[in-house]
């Protein structure tokens, strides 16, 4: 085991540049310990996918990612036959007899993420991203794989996992997932981080960020989340924005810079207008001043 306790895991995650809250650290810890898939839900941009990558770094495992979308099917998720190679192979054999079993053997197989994760000899973290976007049918299929970690290919037979991958699923909750799938998983909801933790995250992820800037950035973003926005900025946006400001050589917020760089925080035009209307300059000055008093 790569870590001995939740505290130990927390410390190691931190070393890889990921700052989890206690709940998430416990979730990852138990998911690995109990060998159980972990379902992470939360608003876009709170770091669901990052969490999977971070635990992979701690485990020294490779991330194999399956991005889900509507219409995702077995050919793109599990395997597909390499038809052109098969045809060439028949051609090359000319008059010689080609054995059908050989033609539908492992060397003509194109491995997609799920099969790749099952066949891997090395430790892997299987990240099934945005499972809520896939169709119901695919979810049912996935359930089968997650219960016994086997895949059946009619021409080859049943393939058993060489070693069970660590499985992390993420969902933006566009729809409710099947209870059966949820029953297979541990569930954790990731919310926006508190102010203190967001400051820590910015300092961790943006090298060379001045202390005061990190505080102001996090404070400003948390104020933005209080305004009614179509898409409140997530931690990912906070990090992007802080990086942009560091790149511009700023060590403090000022209204002009904020207005010019607001695009890395707000992704909708309406939100942009909304924030400008709600006296952007005042908000910035307010944040700057509140920082000075502390």
């Amino acid at each position: 085991m790569a870590f001995s306790s939740i505290d130990d895991l927390e410390r190691q995650l931190l070393e890889t540049g990921y700052l989890p809250d206690r709940g998430l650290a416990t979730a990852l810890f138990l998911s690995v310990r109990l060998d159980k898939p972990l379902l992470l839900e939360g608003e876009p941009g709170v770091g669901k996918t990052e969490a999977a990558k971070a635990i992979a770094r701690v485990l020294g495992a490779r991330v194999i990612r399956l991005q889900c979308y509507e219409g995702l099917d077995v050919q793109h998720a599990v395997y597909e036959w390499n038809y052109s190679r098969q045809l060439l192979h028949i051609r090359a054999a000319q008059e010689g007899q080609v054995d059908e079993q050989e033609l539908f053997g492992p060397e003509f197989l194109i491995r997609r993420p799920l099969l790749e994760a099952l066949e891997s000899e090395e430790p892997v973290v299987l990240l099934i991203d945005e499972i809520d976007r896939a169709d119901d049918e695919f979810e049912a299929f996935l359930l089968e794989i997650l219960s016994d970690f086997t895949i059946t290919i009619p021409e080859i037979g049943t393939i058993h996992a060489k070693r069970k991958p660590t499985v992390i699923l993420t969902s933006n909750r566009t729809r409710e997932l099947h209870d059966a799938l949820k029953r297979r998983c541990m569930f954790h909801w990731i919310g926006h981080p508190g102010l203190e933790r967001e400051i820590e995250i910015v300092k961790l992820r943006v090298p060379g960020v001045p202390e005061r800037l990190a505080e102001q950035v996090a404070t400003f973003v948390s104020r933005l989340r209080d305004i009614d926005l179509a898409k409140p900025p997530g931690v990912a946006e906070t990090i992007d924005w802080a990086s942009a400001l560091v790149e511009l050589g700023k060590d403090e917020l000022d209204p002009e810079t904020v207005e010019a760089t607001l695009g890395s925080l707000l992704k909708y035009h309406e939100d942009f207008e909304n924030v400008k209307k709600s006296a952007l300059a005042d908000l910035v000055m307010d944040v700057v001043k509140s920082g000075l008093q502390t």
């Binding site: 206690r22 709940g23 109990l34 209870d179 029953r183 541990m186 569930f187």
Partner: peptide
């Protein structure tokens, strides 16, 4: 699940017990 979760954390620590139970007993 909850019980095997608790097996792996310190049951004297409130936070650990809370998270082990919540992660295993809540699904929404």
């Amino acid at each position: 699940e909850a019980l095997s979760g608790l097996d792996n954390v310190r049951i004297g620590v409130k936070d650990d017990v809370y998270w082990a139970l919540r992660l295993t007993l809540v699904s929404k």
